[in-house]
């Protein structure tokens, strides 16, 4: 059995393009559906929501080494439910998938882990916070002080994260609409982590410092049937302000954005306020992917060029996508992360 191919077909049951990237447009069945007006509760909502089909704990970081070399790292834990229950033992229908990557200007190394829920191999506990799969973990006494670890055949990292600002709720207090048809997810972020730690690369250990951004999202049907993928930007400007924006590509594109001021005030922007257009395309893993973008949020005077640090930051995982650090120039300077899904070969 080709486990990886199976997973592609099954872990995220994608049966047709019409159901969106990685099956995220699949029917809801018995799963719970995000509703507007539900206030997020912490620390409980840091934990898992097994009644929803899909959920992730998604951390990206822009870092520099002692010689000024820029680095990027990613740590993601996905939860995917075959049925809306949780429990003990192998029968538990919760599946877990971890993705970790380190990006340098020259290299991009990736690792993936898969695990069953219910036996202790992977899971998330809200308080004290712990999210883990195998030896990978993001855990700490509370959500503001975390230790993050992962290892692959070619790399490992172990870094400390300290929050210096508040949690940010996207959309309507965390209810983030994803299409004109009303598909939505719960979505909040912690974009204010200071990072300090060590990357272990084939060349040796590298001490790094930088900034990290953690995204939390869960839903049961986050995509509309016609939506085939998305381009997602998390940008940290030199001014201390930050911006999250995405385009969901479908029959008509759907965009949304959140402006996060340096003092932690969040302002959501509805469909159409945010715009991004490809400037440069790059071929990686047999696909053409836009790795240079013009990104605009006119309401905040943002008109910047976003360029990949390493255009080969392809995540050759069960469900493949592009994810890597970017640099920002134009009306604002800064660094950030770009995620692009649904670019089929």
């Amino acid at each position: 059995m080709n486990v990886k191919a199976l997973l592609l077909a099954l872990l995220l049951p994608m049966q047709a393009v019409a159901q969106g990237f990685a099956g995220l447009g699949a029917a809801v069945d018995d799963f719970a559906v995000p509703l507007p007006g539900r206030a997020l509760e912490f620390p409980a909502d840091h934990g898992a929501h097994p009644a929803y089909r899909i959920e992730w704990w998604y951390l990206t970081a822009n870092m520099t080494g002692p010689d000024g070399t820029p680095y990027g790292l990613q740590w993601t834990l996905f939860r995917s439910a075959l049925a809306p229950q949780d429990g003990e033992g192998w029968e538990t229908p919760q599946l877990w998938m971890g993705h970790a990557a380190v990006t340098t200007p020259e290299a991009h190394v990736v690792a993936e882990r898969l695990a069953r829920g219910g036996i202790g191999q992977a899971g998330v506990v809200a308080d004290p916070f712990a999210a883990w799969i195998d030896d990978w973990a993001m855990e700490g006494p509370d959500f503001d002080n975390l230790r993050l670890r992962a290892s692959g055949a070619e790399f490992a990292y172990d870094v400390a994260l300290t929050a210096t600002g508040p949690l940010i709720r996207h959309g309507q207090d965390g209810y983030s609409v994803k299409s004109a048809a009303g598909q939505a997810s719960y979505y909040y972020s912690q974009p204010f982590f200071d990072l300090k730690g060590t990357l272990t690369l084939p060349e040796g250990a590298v001490p790094v410092t930088g900034r990290a951004w953690l995204d939390r999202e869960w839903s049961s049907q986050p995509l509309a049937a016609d939506q085939t993928g998305w381009d997602w930007f998390s940008l940290s400007f030199d001014t201390g302000d930050k911006m999250m924006g995405f385009i969901l590509r479908g029959d008509t594109d759907y965009t949304a954005a959140t402006w996060i001021s340096a003092d932690g005030q969040a302002t959501p922007y509805p469909d159409g306020a945010f715009a991004a257009a490809p400037l440069a395309w790059h071929e990686v893993a047999g696909r053409r992917v836009p790795t240079g973008w013009q990104v605009r949020l006119p309401d905040r005077g943002v008109d910047v060029t976003v360029t990949a640090l390493n255009p080969d930051a392809w995540m050759a995982t069960s469900v493949p996508y592009w994810e890597g650090p970017v640099t920002i120039s134009g009306s604002h300077g800064g660094v950030g992360y770009l995620e692009m899904t649904g670019y089929d070969d």
Partner: peptide
């Protein structure tokens, strides 16, 4: 355990 079994091992073909 199909999620952790090394590639090519197991009963099911994709």
């Amino acid at each position: 355990e199909p999620l952790t079994a090394p590639g090519g091992l197991g009963p099911v073909r994709a």
